[in-house]
Nucleic acid binder design. Structure first.
Length: 847
RNA sequence: GCUCGGGUGGCGGAAUUGGUAUACGCGUUCGACUUAAAAUCGAAUCUCGUAAGGGGUAUGGGUUCGACUCCCAUCCCGAGCACCA
């Protein structure tokens, strides 16, 4: 018997698959299409992480199964290669990012091929290829044309170490996501993308897609849609000159956004954010302006980091000389500036209802402000007041929704109903607010797509004509961003100075580049038609691969199944949905959503449960594992190690289990080759015993088919593999199996371990690849057991087991149980009160 | 603080979704083969108990004939968000 030599087998088949192109997707096929997608990797210098293999293998299994089920499968691969690490490496070493990227992608490609993924390599893409980013720039120009790309002077998050502006989404705990340096505020002109224009649809359309619920929830929280109302509060100088209603007003109006207009009668003061524009306008009327400006300066200096610190006590200053009028009660209330109110959410001003908002409550407590409860969630008013006014219990009593009190004509109404009525009463406007902010799209960096516009003294911002795309990154000597905050491109005068496309006068190129999220926002579309020179992808191919909503049976259409990391939920996943919707509105893509189904994998941690990192020296190199155990073993192990969506710790010791399993599979197959129709393992000479066991093996096979088929769909790869292991263990006991049954077993194993199964398949005399064979179906009749073991319990405790026939009715089983020797012994001294029978499972006798 | 996960042998984990808790794998122990070792094969492996039997899925309570699973409270771990009005 030949030994199982993974090195030889894996190399051999990888070459044959490559040569025959069996994983190439066809753009014109009569088969139904299936588009499965993984997040294309960032080719880091460290080479592939074992975590990549987990996600890639999962989708490889799905893709291989779909092919065997008769689909025309697209499972593509490419490189998301723009970005900071490569640029930082270039700064350090002086090696050009193009060269670094080429070296890194070469490593990744070799590693991916060594694992036998069924990618269609003919569609490989690279975001740093001018032929690719031509279309990234083109899409940007469409945003510009529609007014969704705009330049704004704004306070941006500035990382003093990386010298780069960061999107809100890239700031973690007030620090730069990449280097951990505390982020500063800095005013800068930035290109922005108006993702907030799509906020409502990005939220609502989550209902139409099949995403894991935790992914939907995270996106929803990020978009942060809340329904409420905008209500105007008139300000008045105080004391008010008694000139009637109109005379009381100072003319200044503050708009407030609230999600709880029903609590308006409880609004006992008003708070403005330190950045609120009304403050400056009111300067002359505020009698303690010195104190107020000091407070504003202090809170601005603190920046976003300290202001959002958890433990921080709330602070604020009353605007003396100013009062506001509560439009519901017409009472004068005080006005404060406090940094617990944020300028960039809602209107930058709130009506404070201390009885029903914890933050307002805390603030009111500190500055001794009036607290008026206006909603009663349960119990009576007396009960509520009997609690300590200044305890949290008191607050909780009144925080919920319920019937209104102390609210004039609205007393007794349910808060939900009162909302609208009170808004109408004070002439407010129903409004929806979002947490989501526009996307800062500029980077003052070299290694990104140049933003394709020209600045002309006469014509202003002029887009580069589409025929002149791509605007190619010029060669520079120094990749370091300039201290002024400009991109290194600003130093290349030859490149910067151009003729204005409109007036032909002197003009300058934009030197900012795009963030690395740009290229990844649409890459799944390029796979569909990667070599197209006229469009980012042809309409014909887009229609075929994304399908129309109707075509895919009620779903949204789009990529059929996309797996990726949870960490990309609020950045990449949301951004690409935004781009896709924009392209949909331009009628350039056929579906309103890019991905029909999205799942996520858990992280692979080092053995101690910590993250794998170079600095900790606990990184596992896949090359070593492939060398000693083989790609099939590694694939199998990564799928077996734990539930797919949860994080798991790496254990090199445990790799031996899957390897032993494959050895057993190999051994059985080697014996099978000697006999054309069936296998008899040593020790049993055949005859009737063997024949009987053939039937046992067949029955087990069909159960295995069902379980493995179902488990793959549910991404329960770990239990699918354990089922396959059980099959092999049992076959060892039966000691005989028909060739056909073993072949079907191999098919079930083939998506997990494509090399060894292909080798055995070919040794068994098959000319065509196992990966192009037909996925086995199970026979319902064979799955049904003729004899079933059931458990007999007395008062819920297991006392005996017995065999019954599969078709036995309840009465038969009962009778059989009561006459059971052990049971009758137990029942001698007791009276049977009740008997519960769970079909084919157990019988519980209550005494 | 809020939201979402999770807590099961020495370890990774299973449990048909309310029906025999610990499948499968790792490790460990014993045995077979071997001059020996490795590999392989066989047996054992939650816990107390000689046994009959008892206890046991983070903790305390509840619902149920029956709870890892459902409900209430508490503790711990992980992820995300965070003064979002």
């Amino acid at each position: 018997m030949k030994a199982y030599d993974h090195k030889k087998i894996e190399k051999k088949w990888q070459n044959i698959w490559d040569k025959k192109g069996i994983y190439k997707a066809s753009d014109s096929s009569k088969k139904p299409k299936y588009y499965s997608l993984i997040e294309f990797p960032y080719p880091s210098g460290a080479g592939m992480h074992v975590g990549h293999i987990r996600s890639n293998t999962a989708m490889d299994i799905i893709s291989r199964k779909r092919r065997m089920e008769g689909y025309n499968v697209l499972y593509p691969i490419g490189w998301d290669a723009f970005g900071l690490p490569t640029e930082n490496y270039a700064i350090k070493t002086g090696i050009h990012p193009i060269k670094v990227t080429k070296d890194n992608t070469d490593t990744f490609r070799r590693q991916l091929k060594a694992l036998g993924f069924s990618f269609d390599w003919s569609r490989e893409i690279n975001t740093t290829d001018p032929k690719y980013y031509k279309w990234t720039q083109w899409i940007f120009l469409q945003f510009l044309k529609k007014g969704l790309a705009y330049k704004a002077k704004m306070n941006i998050n500035w990382c003093p170490k990386d010298k780069i502006g960061l999107a809100n989404e890239e700031v973690v705990d007030g620090c730069c996501e990449r280097c951990g340096t505390a982020v500063e505020k800095r005013e800068k002109e930035q290109w922005m993308l108006a993702i907030t224009k799509y906020a409502d649809r990005l939220d609502k359309d989550l209902d139409t897609v099949d995403y894991l619920s935790k992914i939907k929830i995270q996106q929803r929280n990020w978009i942060g849609r809340s329904e409420g109302a905008e209500i105007e509060f008139h300000l008045t100088p105080s004391p008010s000159p008694l000139q009637g209603e109109g005379g009381r007003r100072s003319g200044e109006v503050v708009k407030v956004f609230t999600t709880r207009p029903d609590t308006l009668y409880g609004a006992t003061y008003l708070v403005l954010a330190p950045e609120h524009p009304s403050l400056v306008k009111l300067k002359s009327k505020i009698t303690n302006w010195g104190k107020v400006t000091q407070y504003i300066l202090d809170s601005k200096a603190k920046g976003g980091i300290e202001r959002t610190k958890d433990e921080k006590e709330k602070t604020g200053v009353e605007l003396e000389g100013i009062k506001a009028i509560n439009p519901a009660t017409s009472e004068e209330i005080s006005v404060w500036v406090a940094d617990y109110v944020l300028s960039n959410y809602g209107t930058g001003a709130i009506m404070a209802v201390p009885a029903h908002d914890e933050r307002d409550f805390e603030f009111a407590k500190k500055y001794d402000l009036k607290i008026v409860p206006v909603v009663l969630s349960g119990g009576s008013v007396q009960e509520g007041w009997s609690l300590d006014n200044y305890s949290n219990e008191w607050n909780a009593q009144y925080s919920n929704f319920g019937k209104l009190i102390n609210s004039g004509r609205f007393d007794g109404l349910e808060s939900e109903i009162a909302k609208k009525k009170i808004v109408d009463f004070v002439g407010g406007k129903e409004k929806v607010s979002f947490k989501l902010r526009d996307w800062v799209f500029s980077r003052q960096r070299y290694w990104g797509e140049p933003i394709p516009v020209v600045h002309c003294g006469k014509c202003g911002v002029v887009p580069v004509p589409e025929k002149d795309l791509p605007v190619v990154l010029p060669k520079v000597k120094n990749y370091q961003p300039t201290d002024s905050g400009e991109s290194p491109l600003a130093n290349i005068t030859k490149w910067v100075n151009v003729k204005c496309p409109k007036c032909k006068g002197l003009a300058k190129r934009e030197t900012d580049t795009m963030p690395n999220w740009a290229g990844s926002s649409w890459y799944y579309l390029r796979y569909i038609d990667p070599k197209n020179k006229k469009e980012f992808a042809s309409q014909k191919n887009l229609k075929y691969w994304l399908g129309s909503p109707k075509q895919s049976g009620g779903g949204t259409g789009g990529v059929d199944w996309y797996n990726g990391g949870m960490e990309h939920t609020t950045l990449h996943l949301l951004y690409s949905r935004f781009w896709h919707k924009f392209l949909y509105d331009l009628k350039l893509v056929p579906t309103s959503e890019p991905y029909e189904k999205r799942t996520s994998h858990g992280m692979i941690l080092a053995s101690q449960g910590e993250k794998m990192s170079k600095s900790k020296g606990n990184v596992v190199n896949p090359d070593d594992i492939v060398k000693t155990y083989g790609a099939d073993t590694l694939r199998l192990y990564e799928m077996f190690m734990g539930p797919f969506d949860q994080s798991v710790s790496w254990s090199t010791d445990s790799l031996i289990g899957p390897r032993r399993f494959l050895e057993k599979v190999w051994k059985i197959a080697s014996q099978l080759e000697q006999n054309s129709a069936h296998l008899t393992l040593p020790g049993v000479p055949g005859g009737t015993y063997a024949t009987q066991n053939f039937a046992l093996a067949t029955a087990l096979l069909h159960k295995t088919i069902k379980k493995v088929t179902d488990d793959i769909e549910g991404m329960k790869f770990n239990t699918a593999i354990s089922t396959l292991m059980i099959f092999v263990n049992e076959i060892g006991k039966f000691e005989s199996i028909q060739k056909e049954d073993y072949e079907n077993f191999l098919k079930l194993l083939s998506p997990f371990a494509p090399h060894i199964t292909e080798e055995i398949w070919s040794n068994l005399g098959h000319k065509n690849s196992i990966h192009l064979s037909v996925w086995p179906e199970y026979n319902e009749a064979l799955i049904k057991d003729k004899e079933i073991k059931i458990v007999i319990q007395i008062n819920g405790k297991v006392r005996a087991e017995m065999m019954i026939n599969g078709d036995d009715g309840e009465d038969e089983v009962k009778g059989q149980a009561l006459s059971n020797e052990i049971i009758s012994k137990y029942l001698k001294d007791f009276e049977v009160k009740k008997v519960i029978y769970v079909k084919n499972r157990l019988l519980n006798i209550v005494v």
